[in-house]
Design a binder for these strands. Structure first.
Lengths: 193, 193
DNA sequence: CGTCTATTTGAATGTACTCAAAAGCGGTGG
DNA sequence: CCACCGCTTTTGAGTACATTCAAATAGACG
């Protein structure tokens, strides 16, 4: 599988020697998945940190009542996975599902450890990656606290215009923290204007 | 000001030489604040990443209607600040306020840059710090999506038992995404059992 | 074309909010 | 030391935003 996008997202932040680049790319397992296929299930032992090369994924939590709650979507160039279980080796809380035919690159906890051990320069890359995710998530928390559903939906479509093509409405509703029925009503109201 | 706690939180994750330790501690500006004093205001140019040595802080967003929304509390050993504005040099969106008499250690964006430049080993520390924050925030988002207010409140008191002593209820309500009136009603209902 | 799932629609319900007023609490000054 | 002031918390009534449930419609896929 092509690792160009992967390497590019890294070299946007840190310079790499050919050797580092090779070793890095070698840490990943390529995997192709079909729409709806699961890359990760709750309770499974083997966890990966996942990089999307093509396609689209979503990572979600299934609660005691069987309702899904979308934590994250992932488009090409984005990372996803249950960070907590990857890093602590605990069982995954989340599922990760392909929303479309996708090419994904997987790295295990131990591969990541070895990479950071051998080439500590990657610490910087992951520091920046996590830092940016943190900023994004802060924005999401802020919206959940301060904005009503309609406004959250409008911001979502503005921030991620490409996602609506891949993602069924019910998952967008879930990401926004509302029911699919209510999202449908919000959309109708917006259309009528 | 004593930098023992600061250095300890770092050496829990990475080993430091005496020289690194000294340089690191030297990057920080000590500051004492009284209850209610603001360490950071929205729109201000100079941004710090803040480490709490003693006392307690909170970082919050004030929306267009003048309502505050608490992003984060910070107890001794914790970090806070508007990461986005610190790292990108943009104006702060948040305010940070002392909840009690506090000793705080401040590092500017440029100091942090210099530190990471000179001793890249600190990249690892901040990678782990941000990684853990990310995990914590994922948990918070999950709760906002899946749990009703009463459950969120119970989880909050279980997770941060010490915070209730420092933090007025209205700020806990704000952190949970509900009004102070409604939190009061939840508490009464819980007492009656 | 038929089946399965997603979306829409409407009615009834519930969770949480707004507004207003009373009660509690803490600090400060006389 | 107590009285007063300001702010937080409580309480209640009315309201709004969002949910649940059920049924109809629309879309996607084999």
């Amino acid at each position: 599988m092509n690792t160009r996008l992967l390497v590019d997202t890294v070299t946007r932040h840190i310079a790499l020697t050919t050797e580092e680049e090779k070793f890095f790319a070698g840490c990943f397992l390529p995997r192709n998945v079909r729409p709806n296929e699961l890359l990760e299930k709750p309770g499974e032992p083997t966890q990966f940190f996942m990089f999307v090369n093509t396609g689209a994924l979503m990572t979600y939590y299934t609660d005691a009542d069987g309702h899904d709650h979308v934590m994250q979507f992932a488009m090409p160039g984005w990372w996803t996975g249950d960070l907590s279980s990857i890093m602590k080796g605990t069982e995954s809380l989340f599922s990760t599902r392909a929303l479309a035919e996708s090419e994904v690159l997987l790295i295990t906890h131990s591969s990541l450890d070895q990479l950071l051990e051998k080439y500590p320069r990657f610490e910087r890359f992951y520091r920046i990656l996590f830092q940016n995710s943190l900023i994004t998530q802060q924005g999401r928390i802020l919206q959940n606290l301060s904005a009503p559903a309609e406004e959250r939906y409008l911001n979502f479509t503005k921030k991620y215009p490409t996602l609506e093509q891949f993602v069924p409405q019910k998952y967008i509703a879930s990401y926004l923290g509302i029911t699919p029925e209510f999202l449908s009503k919000i959309r109708r109201k917006l259309m009528e204007r």
